[in-house]
Each structure stands twice: as C-alpha cells, then as structure tokens.
Design a protein around this nucleic acid. Structure first.
Length: 376
DNA sequence: CGTTATGATTTCGC
DNA sequence: GCGAAATCATAACG
C-alpha cells in the first residue's frame, strides 16, 4: 500500500524493543534519508513507465511531507515569479475611467432606468400644453436614440460581466485542480483572478469609451441648440409678443412671469430671457420696423382684454376700424422715414416708456424729422 | 444665392 | 447675476 512511506511503518525497519532514546537520533537520520528518497523518486518519476509513475505520484500525494514540500515549492515559485512580474501589482483608479463613468452616469446611460418617467412627462407636457411639435419631436428622437445606446451598453456590459465571471470560475477550478499536482498557491490563484479581471475591465473601458463617443455625437447632433437653431413655434412667439407689447413700458418679466411664459411656450426660462433681451434691443434699435406688430398686438390685447372700449366704431371686426391701422402700418413699412414713433394707437402709454431712455433711434430708420408736416 | 429674421452666445458694465 | 450691446450662426424667404 505505502511502498514509499518509510516513516510510517518503522516496524519493519526497527527492532521492536529499541529504547526510546535511540529512536530519537535514529528518527532524524531516518527523516533526512526519507526526504532524499522522496526527492530521488520525484526526480526519476519521468523515467518510469506511466503506470509506475502514476502510482508513485499518488503515493507522493499522500505522503505526509507533501504539504511542507508543496509550500516550499510554492514559496520558491513565488520568489522567482515576483522578480518577473510584480510591476503593476496595484493599479490606481484610472482617472480616464472615472471620467468615463461619471459622464455615462450624468448622461443617464449608466444609471438606473428612467425612460418611462421621462416619456410620461413628455407626453403629459405635449398633451396638456401646446408644446412645439419640433422640439418635442426632436426630443423624443434624441431620447429614443439615447435609450438605444443605453440598451446596447447594458447588454454588452452584462455579457462581459457574465463572461468574466464564467472565465474566472473556470480558471479558478482549473488552478485548484492543478494545485494538487503542481505548486499553485492560493495567492497565485488570486493574482490570476485579478489579472483576468483587469483584462475584462479594460475591455469594458473600451465599451464605455465608445459609448461615450456615441452619446457625444448624438448630443452634438440633437442638443447643440446653437448649431441647429430652431425658431419658436408661432404660438410661442405670439405669447411672448403679447406679453412684450402689453408691457411695453416695462418689458422686464419677473421670475414668476418668465416661468409662466416659459411654461406657456414650452421653452426654458433662459430662452424667455434671451427672447426678451433680443426683443428689447431690436425693438429699441428700430422702433419703426416694429410699429406694425406693435399695433397688431396692442389691438389684439385690447380686444382680448376688454370689450368695454368707449369708441363705438372698432370693437368688432378688423373691417372698418382697421383702415387707419393698416394704412399707418403701410406707411411705416413703405416709407421708413416717419419720425421715430407714431403711435396710431396710443393704448397703454407704453410708446415712450422709460426703459428706452428716449434716446433717438440711431439714425437707422428714424430720419425724416426734417419734414415739418405730418402734423396729425 | 444673397438678404433678412431670429435664437444663442459673448463681452462688458453694474 | 442681470441686462445692454455686439456678434455669431442658422432658418426662412424671395
């Protein structure tokens, strides 16, 4: 059974009645010779026939010195291996990767699903208010593309994750298996696993990289408002103009007013601010050019706000009453010179408010002041 | 295709 | 940070 277990069956080697004292020294010699034996057997194992080697191997495996030898061999291997490759033992958290992660998270690609909520919100906004069809369309388009990217990203990520764990367990089993026949320390297995993980995570980094790129491209295609400027919807401009001309004396909407306007026009508050900034400056720059629409909106608000206009002739249609309006508008359009402001409708005292500092419209279209006529 | 209209951005003063 | 003014860049128009 144990052909090479000389330590165990001492009964054969030693006389039964040997005194204990002798046995101690004898034992030391014995062990040394045993180890020599074992090594000899290990060295010659390759020369033997397969069957013989197999049985020897098994015997060696069961030998009581085996764990010690194993650990020594592991140690030696560790030492020689250490010099070879312990260069990148600890990797710092790659800043590049962190950046990618953050961006994906911020873009909603990596984070939890939120497509449903956003979609619901959008549809609600569309149905409730008159969201401009362009922007909503564009937005949903962007959203669907983004969720497409996210899906791909997630499935790929999952695939990698699964492959990685599969491969890891496979390698671990293999190494554990082999650790019975060759010096593979648990630490080495650990390191192997770490290497595998590193490889896989580098693949994942690539995935993240390309996902980021895709999102960036999508973003620049859809959300770069400056490059692809869209005009506001007719209705939105209507609302904004109504507010502007009905507050001509002080066209500076408060925060709340901006919010309300933004909601009504389905645009952002900063867009409202932009619009008013542009409007103010452009109106002031050339009042004449805006006279027509000023009249238009003034009339509109007048009609909309209250019917109790004391003038009996204009309250209903644009028919009869509009003659003066259209006539004057024509005048303004056709003949730019027409002295600064000529409000045919001096409705709300807005005409010459304080905000434009009554400075003369810089010569652009206001001239003609030399004409002394035009009194009424 | 040139011009105008218009939304956004930049610059600057407060 | 807000607004005026200048400027940019594109959409809309003839």
């Amino acid at each position: 059974m144990h052909p090479l277990n000389p330590v165990h069956p001492p009964s054969r080697h030693r006389p039964e009645g040997d005194p204990a004292g002798l046995e101690g020294t004898e034992n030391g010699h014995d062990s040394r010779r045993d180890i020599g034996d074992i090594l000899q057997q290990i060295m010659t194992i390759t020369d033997q026939s397969l069957d013989e080697a197999q049985s020897k191997k098994h015997a060696l495996n069961c030998h009581q010195m085996k764990p010690a030898l194993f650990s020594v061999l592991c140690e030696i291997k560790e030492k020689t291996g250490l010099s070879m490759r312990n260069a990148q033992e600890e990797e710092p958290p790659d800043p590049q990767l962190v950046r990618l992660d953050n961006m994906l998270l911020a873009e909603g690609v990596a984070g939890p699903e939120k497509g449903g909520g956003a979609a619901a919100a959008v549809s609600a906004a569309t149905s409730s208010g008159g969201m401009s069809p362009d922007s909503s369309l564009e937005h949903s388009d962007y959203k669907s593309k983004l969720s497409q990217i996210r899906n791909i990203y997630h499935t790929e990520m999952e695939k990698y994750e699964q492959a990685c764990s599969e491969f890891t367990t496979h390698v671990m089993n293999l190494l554990r298996e082999q650790s019975r026949t060759r010096p593979v320390s648990p630490r080495e297995i650990e390191r192997m696993v770490a290497i595998i993980h590193r490889k896989f995570s580098s693949i994942q980094t690539q995935l993240k990289q390309s996902t980021c790129e895709a999102v960036m491209i999508l973003r620049s295609r859809f959300l770069d408002a400056r490059r692809k400027r869209r005009n506001f919807s007719k209705q939105a401009t209507e609302v904004l103009n109504e507010y502007f001309y009905s507050h001509l004396s002080n066209p500076y909407p408060s925060e709340e007013a901006k919010e309300e306007l933004a909601k009504q026009c389905s645009i952002t508050m900063s867009q409202v601010s932009n619009w008013f900034g542009n409007k103010r400056i452009r109106y002031k720059k050339n009042i004449g050019k805006f006279q027509e629409e000023a009249n238009l909106y003034a009339m509109k608000t007048a009609l909309g706000a209250t019917q109790s206009e004391e003038s009996p002739h204009t309250p209903n249609s644009t028919g009869s009453g509009s003659f003066s309006l259209s006539g004057s508008a024509d005048c303004f359009l056709g003949v730019p010179p027409m002295d600064g402001e000529q409000p045919p409708y001096h409705m709300g005292a807005q005409t010459n408010g304080s905000w434009q500092e009554q400075n003369t419209p810089p010569s652009a279209a206001s001239p003609g002041s030399d004409h002394s006529d035009n009194s009424d």
